[in-house]
């Protein structure tokens, strides 16, 4: 008798402690973010100036948009890096799209054709990821790693590893234009974030994608064609790579090598984003905060005069802490 009464109580206690630890970590993440922002606001001269705050948003835009692509893949396939999905090709893909755009522009095709071609390239690479993961059933980690190399190789073929300068009135507007005091890049970040939050958190399509990533078999049993959603998630990540590549070229006035180096910060932002969500799941809002968090760190460190060499190291430590805390809380 005692046992039958005690058992549910015990489970409830466990659940409560699990929920409590999740809540603590989530609140802790928000508190850490807020604490760091407040510290920078007090200690770093010029941190809170409107000009600097816009800078932070601008500097986080490219990272954030690419991290959105990975977030959508996480949502559609689950965040378990070993068994779930991941897109390691996204940064190299953006580099390839930037190269396609720059090469076509140099050949006189104009913005419209070049932008469409760049985005189409990104989506084809996404399709390739989908093919490898869904149809050929290769582990996503390896499949997208292979596709990453394909994209990086194609970029080298196109650019011969050189800088390809590009200029156009549109790029000028994206790089240096302002509307209501906010730069075009920052507007892109804001508008795309709002659209994606709506599409993924509030539309039936988004809910079905969460269902597919949350429990593949259950979603299939409920009549959702899961394969198509996973394909779509990878193609969408490719689409984001294409769109972001235009912003990259506008900011650098050129297609340059080294876009692939952004992979780690992108994964960091997408993984860190889960800490800001209620159930430790990937969300666009969480990734948005995580990208801004990383942007705030780099900016604040520079304003405080801390050597730029420390930034990458401290980012790494933070990511390690967050990922460790998240997996610990999930185990609970």
């Amino acid at each position: 008798m005692t046992t039958t009464i005690d058992a549910p109580n015990g489970r409830e206690g466990q659940l409560n402690s699990g929920n409590l630890s999740k809540l603590a970590i989530r609140l802790g993440a928000f508190a850490a973010f807020a604490g760091i922002v407040i510290y920078f606001a007090i200690a770093a001269r010029g941190f809170t100036s409107p000009f600097n705050l816009t800078n932070i948003v601008e500097q986080s835009t490219i990272l954030g948009l690419l991290a959105f692509g990975v977030t959508v893949v996480f949502i559609g396939t689950g965040t378990d890096v070993q068994r779930g999905g991941i897109d390691l090709s996204i940064a190299a893909n953006a580099g390839l799209c930037a190269a396609v755009y720059a090469v076509l522009m140099r050949q006189g095709f104009g913005d419209a054709v070049s932008i469409v071609a760049a985005i189409a390239t990104g989506m084809i690479i996404g399709l390739l990821n989908g093919l490898a993961v869904v149809t050929l059933r290769i582990i996503p980690l390896l499949a997208t790693l292979a596709v990453m190399n394909i994209a990086a190789g194609l970029e080298l073929v196109l650019t011969e590893n050189t800088v390809i300068p590009v200029q156009s009135p549109l790029l000028q507007v994206i790089a240096f234009g302002r509307f209501l005091g906010i730069s075009t890049l920052a507007w892109c970040f804001i508008v795309i974030s709002v659209l994606l939050i709506w599409a993924l958190q509030y539309s039936p399509l988004g809910l079905r994608l969460y269902a597919v990533g949350g429990h593949h078999e259950a979603a299939r049993a409920a009549g959702i064609r899961t394969g198509r959603y996973v394909y779509a998630a990878y193609i969408f990540a490719g689409f984001m790579a294409g769109v972001t590549s235009i912003l990259i070229v506008s900011r650098l006035s050129a297609s340059t090598t080294g876009t692939g180096l952004m992979l780690l910060p992108i994964l960091a932002a997408a993984l860190l984003g889960t800490v800001f969500s209620r159930r430790f799941i990937p969300t666009i809002g969480g990734t948005l905060l995580a990208a801004l968090f990383i942007g705030v760190l780099a900016n604040g460190f520079q304003l405080l005069g801390i050597s730029s060499y420390w930034v990458a190291g401290v980012q790494g430590v933070l990511i390690l802490c967050v990922v460790a805390m998240t997996s610990f809380a999930k185990r609970d």
């Binding site: 500097q59 340059t256 080294g258 900016n299 304003l303 730029s308």
Partner: peptide
């Protein structure tokens, strides 16, 4: 390149 541009941007604000 992207890091250098961001650093220059913040430097201007300083």
């Amino acid at each position: 390149d992207q890091t250098q541009i961001s650093q220059i941007q913040t430097l201007i604000a300083q």
